[in-house]
Design a protein around this nucleic acid. Structure first.
Lengths: 156, 156
DNA sequence: GAATCTTATTTCGATATCGAACTATCTTAT
DNA sequence: ATAAGATAGTTCGATATCGAAATAAGATTC
């Protein structure tokens, strides 16, 4: 790697976008056959690993607006993969959980997904992965700070 | 940074997605006031820096399907920011170029965009940016290779 | 040089997503 | 206790995007 040259911020943003896109396109292609999009897959995945969650909690984890979450869970509900249960303690809240069928379904797909993703990143050493994680988090943190600042400035 | 722990591939993918999303949301918020989305902005930007291009060439650069590019250029055309010119040498081709108004418009916005992006990445040293670029490219390359393999496998 | 294949762009229909408005419920302050 | 405000979820209308089909023109093959 040549550490002499300088990478401009716009260039780095373009590379980030292209890389994200390349991985997303690949992952989409691997689950498209199951009739799943990346968002629906992510919702199932979070339910598998975190257990039953409220609509808002899922939406926050998978980076979707609440309105979009309603549609997503509707889709999964119609396929019998998840179920909405009314909360006992708070009647506004609907808790979403996997059905038995949904659990079997996502478990199998996720296992394969994990293997494919590990294969994809097989070229990155442990140190490289940690580096990449560290740098991405740093950048992501800066962006969310900047977003908040921008939002407050504009809405008041 | 702790290089002892291992970063799993799924975890790294989630971080990549969140970082991409955080930066995208921020950048969107900075150009939303101009009535531009990120794709339309990207199309104008590429025309500013690469000069007039065909529909397909723009679509490829900004990672949009051709069909989406038609809509995007329609929007920009209606606002008087770009113009379609029929190619002399190939009558299938329509070359898109900035109008004078479009050039003034995107020049000003891009300059600001560049400053904001540099500020956003101000926390990354030159070495860190180069590292990040290197690692992202490596990952992106692996993903596009995997995508191609997957595509060929599935379509035949 | 006619038929076939490829390429560039647009049209069309479907869909995922969003923000804003709305409803229902819970919480807080007085 | 009541009013005011906050929160959870949904509905609604708008929009960006896509893949597939359509159209038109070039390129290739025989």
């Amino acid at each position: 790697m040549n550490n002499e040259q300088t990478t401009s911020a716009p260039k780095l943003w373009v590379i980030l976008a292209r890389t994200y896109n390349a991985v997303a396109v690949y992952l989409e292609s691997t689950i498209a056959a199951e009739g799943l999009g990346l968002s629906d897959f992510a919702a199932l995945e979070v339910l598998l690993h975190k257990g039953p969650l409220t609509m808002s909690a899922i939406a926050e984890k998978v980076l979707l607006a609440n309105a979009s979450m309603t549609s997503a869970i509707d889709r999964l509900d119609e396929r019998g993969l998840v179920r909405r249960v009314n909360s006992e303690s708070d009647r506004r809240v609907r808790i979403v959980e996997l059905t038995a069928q949904g659990r079997t379904f996502i478990s199998a797909i996720y296992e394969r997904h994990e293997r494919e993703l590990e294969a994809l990143m097989g070229g990155l050493s442990r140190a490289e992965r940690n580096q990449l994680r560290h740098l991405l988090k740093k950048l992501g943190y800066a962006a969310s700070v900047a977003s908040r600042a921008n939002k407050e400035e504009h809405q008041q």
